[in-house]
Design a protein around this nucleic acid. Structure first.
Lengths: 352, 352
DNA sequence: CGGGAGCGTGAGAGCGCTCCCGGTGGTTTT
DNA sequence: AAAACCACCGGGAGCGCTCTCACGCTCCCG
């Protein structure tokens, strides 16, 4: 129903809106940006002109002068295999998307394929295409933190970075993480309550804090645990299967397994079944993440530690947006880092 | 190791580069954009200045004058459940990302949560934030095509849209799709070769062409198929299970099932196992997609129709980029639609 | 009734870049 | 030898917007 733009080919400008409303460009701009300090009557006139012309602000022109883009980068640097198998990222991205959308901010997705890509990422971030960045699941030697720090890009990490609390200073970064350690403790305690005594652990890759934190939680409860009861996986189903096979060889008497994520738990499950071991009759099994279509769909359904992944995504985005808003009003000295640990809950199903 | 920018707070401009290299801004611009028609000696001088200053072009300023953003929107409008359970999107996005990155184009992700979001999408697309769009898996009543057409946004669809070949004209859209029909034919023929005669089909949601095309392929081979042998699912594991239960009730004598995707096949598998039916002893099972961690990890591993999902993503991006490049050089009359159908291959595993 | 206070508005500069156009110097043509 | 032609480079306009500043108007107080 709205009328066609003034010029057939090109979009109407603020100038055109101002002309039609009989005001200056400055006033039209004020209306577009909230209408503060403009008489209601004038605001209406401009609003009508905007509607009639189908005016949409030119973001490039706006960015050029404000130096803000209204966009945020989401950087995912994870080997191919995991990004596809684990719904984790999709859910977190979804949470991020929701929060950003609610604040009229766009999501620019940067996938890192190999280490050479970091040059591209740096150029992109330095190019002023985005106001801030969200990054995930860093390994200890990830070059990203150095990059974002060098170019002064506000960044919030998903998952506690391995290099916080570096030598001397606490490495001022913001992050959002689940209570991995607490969740792991709860999982292991649950197995103890079930009467299990030889509780093994399939850890994730130990260059990630989510893996080490869960391992730490396991050790918190089982202080004197036999090292033979711990095997390292890689957060994939196949890796979980390999680790399970290893564990069965080293510690045939185990009566429970706590896997650091659900995918590895399914791999373990497959191996246990192949060896004729009943779950939970012979071996109790607990996973981590409560990923749908994995934990629930397993046979038997997995007891697991749930974390609110989508909520974590929202929190990440919210934290970043707040940082950006502050940087805009306050002195540009950079906001202090701020982090959030979200709680986990144990979901009891048939596998334990 | 590059030097710091001239001004401490702000980034160096092309002006600064030109001054340092002792040339005009215009010449510096030429070098930045390829260096055509500039003497090699001058090119070098400018390149050195760029490096020394750590110059990065300001995209906003560039976009303002060129009217091109160097970014492409990827629009995913799919109910939550599927986007998480099916690695399909992740893979396709990955393919898209690779192709875009290779052409220095950014990927802006737009997730559609509910129908109200389409206003936001339209505003965004109309706002000139991106040069083109890639969209997926449209349902027949999807408002997106109308939007992109109205605002003249070059768009390539993933999966044949349901509304091509509308009344009268062929609805000029570009798309990339797998040979769903041919793949389905191959799957069913394979089951026939295995000596199966009562071959059932679990279809996807019939408002999507990927589902109807596969159903058509099934019917191509089994012209006289009993309607009781066809059940509609929703591309999820749970939906596959429901459909399988339905089929077993309606047609207890079935000896094979062709499911329209792997996820539904796993649901079917679970139901078959629960009913004590052996796969493939009693019932042969074939899926579609060959999604890793699903087809291969199933027990038994699924025979399935493989499509090159990542390749399709690359093709989509490539098609769009070529369209955009053409629109830039040729008359702005809009390039003719162009579509690609990619082949499928049958992967034989233990389930059939 | 004069003069500040204060609100609402307009004029204008300028963000950093691209690109057209015109000029310069050197090489080829008639 | 002059004329025509290149290849290369610089000047300058302008993309659409925001934001500062100054100006005019109304209002209120002394």
């Amino acid at each position: 129903m709205p009328a066609q733009p003034s010029a057939p080919g090109s979009r109407p400008t603020l100038e055109a809106v101002a002309a039609r409303a009989g005001v200056s460009r400055a006033t039209a701009s004020r209306v577009v940006n909230g209408g503060e300090g403009v008489r209601a009557h004038v605001v209406d006139k401009v609003r009508v002109a905007i509607r009639e012309l189908g005016y949409v602000p030119n973001q490039a022109a706006r960015t050029l002068v404000t130096r803000r883009t209204g966009a945020v980068a989401v950087i995912i640097a994870e080997p191919e295999v995991r990004i596809f198998s684990d719904p984790f990222f999709s859910r977190q991205v979804r949470g991020i998307s929701k929060e950003l959308t609610a604040h009229d901010t766009q999501l620019v997705l940067l996938l890192v394929e190999d280490r050479g890509d970091y040059d591209r990422i740096e150029r992109y971030l330095a190019g002023g295409h985005v106001d801030g960045a969200l990054a995930f699941s860093l390994h200890t030697d990830d070059p990203l933190p150095a990059i974002t720090r060098r170019i002064g890009m506000p960044t919030v990490y998903g998952g506690r970075p391995g290099w916080t609390g570096g030598p001397g200073e606490p490495g001022g970064v913001s992050y959002v993480d689940a209570d991995n350690r607490g969740g792991a403790r709860e999982a292991v305690r649950h197995l103890l309550e079930r009467g299990r005594r030889r509780i093994a652990h399939i850890a994730g890759p130990l260059d990630q804090t989510s893996a080490t934190d869960r391992l730490d939680g396991y050790r918190d409860v089982l202080r004197e645990s036999d090292p033979a009861l711990i095997a390292e996986g890689d957060f994939t189903s196949a890796g979980g299967a390999r680790a399970m096979a290893e564990l069965l060889e080293r510690a045939p008497g185990l009566d429970a397994v706590f896997a650091a994520n659900d995918l590895m738990a399914t791999g373990a499950l497959r191996v246990l079944r192949e060896r004729g071991l009943g779950v939970p009759a012979d071996v109790s099994l607990v996973g981590f993440d409560d990923t749908e279509q994995v934990a629930e769909a397993a046979d038997p359904p997995l007891t697991t530690v749930r974390q609110d992944i989508e909520g974590m995504g929202r929190l990440m985005a919210g934290l970043l947006l707040r940082t950006l808003a502050r940087g805009r009003t306050a002195t540009a000295g950079g906001a202090p880092p701020e982090s959030v640990i979200t709680p986990t809950t144990l979901v009891r199903r048939a596998s334990s």
